[in-house]
Design a protein around this nucleic acid. Structure first.
Lengths: 169, 169
DNA sequence: TAAGATTGATACATCAATCTTG
DNA sequence: CAAGATTGATGTATCAATCTTA
């Protein structure tokens, strides 16, 4: 369509819109931390997702559902689960559809309030969790935790917790 | 469908599959860092996405494309761009389709190797970048950078860079 | 044949609207 | 009406297969 011989716009120099921010050394450092944060997250979720899928054919989202259910004694309301997973309500509805289809979880009516739906982990689901957990935890250990000494781990935990909690409100 | 009066599976105690890992205090700390990392990322991308969309009606992905093009002098091959954005090739094809539709970028044939396609930032795209950058950078500053003192920023940058670079190979 | 990019089928998430129960 | 959950329409990502040029 467009020929490269006649470029429609001769390349101007890159816009240095960030000059105001990176001018001072401290801001430069913080922006580097920000980029590192994004890259690390992308790479980590990619490997962990791949490893779990290859080893146990389980999507990371499914694993997360099972972990949450396990930590809450095996059952949880849709609303709570959606919150814990940082997922929209409709997103969770479909996720639970698929996982029920695979017999890893099951829906049950809440006898007290029939508007609510409770999600139960099935024995099959529990088995899937028990088999997947070592794989996933080994991955987290190898790709994330092993690179942090205790001081660094504490800094990450504290700083990131602070950051997260200042957003939600 | 299922009545809650007859639960199909009486809740067993939560499986403590993670005992082997959290038994020692240092591993506990690192797992907390891992959870904080995930939560912080989810919350941060959510706010930043929302803020940019509300202020300039620009998806964060589009912004990232413009930033990359700007840093590379205004043009980049599809392949390079996909790599820089941590996006699949086909994903980038569609993204560039939409952005071309909106006149923010433009495709051009590479005269040297006609298999390749070069993506150019248009004047409209540059304007969009210049208007969006302050909004986004203010967001990063407010929600992320402002919570870090220089020492913490350095730890995050160094540790996360180390983590990311040990994955790709 | 291989590299670069696109296309088709599909998976998964969201918003807004809707249904059911309180 | 409000709360909890689901549904319909839609946006955007992926893989595998395909097309074009080297």
């Amino acid at each position: 369509v467009t020929t490269a011989d006649k470029l429609p716009h001769p390349p101007p120099p890159p816009t240095r819109w960030y000059d105001a921010f990176v001018g001072e050394q401290p801001e430069q450092l913080r922006l580097e931390a920000w980029r590192a944060f994004l890259v690390a997250h992308a790479r980590l979720t990619e490997v962990l997702e791949r490893e779990l899928r290859e080893a146990r054919d389980l999507p990371l989202t499914w694993y997360d559902v099972l972990v949450q259910l396990n930590e809450q004694g095996g059952s949880l309301r849709m609303k709570e689960l959606a919150g814990a997973l940082l997922l929209s309500k409709s997103g969770l509805t479909r996720l639970i559809d698929r996982m029920s289809e695979a017999n890893l979880v099951q829906r049950a009516a809440d006898p007290g309030d029939r508007r609510g739906v409770t999600v139960l982990m099935t024995p099959t689901g529990r088995r899937a969790l028990v088999e997947a957990a070592p794989v996933h935890l080994r991955g987290v250990q190898e790709h994330f935790a092993a690179h942090l000494n205790p001081d660094e781990a504490a800094v990450l935990r504290d700083a990131l917790t602070r950051i997260a909690s200042d957003i939600r409100p």
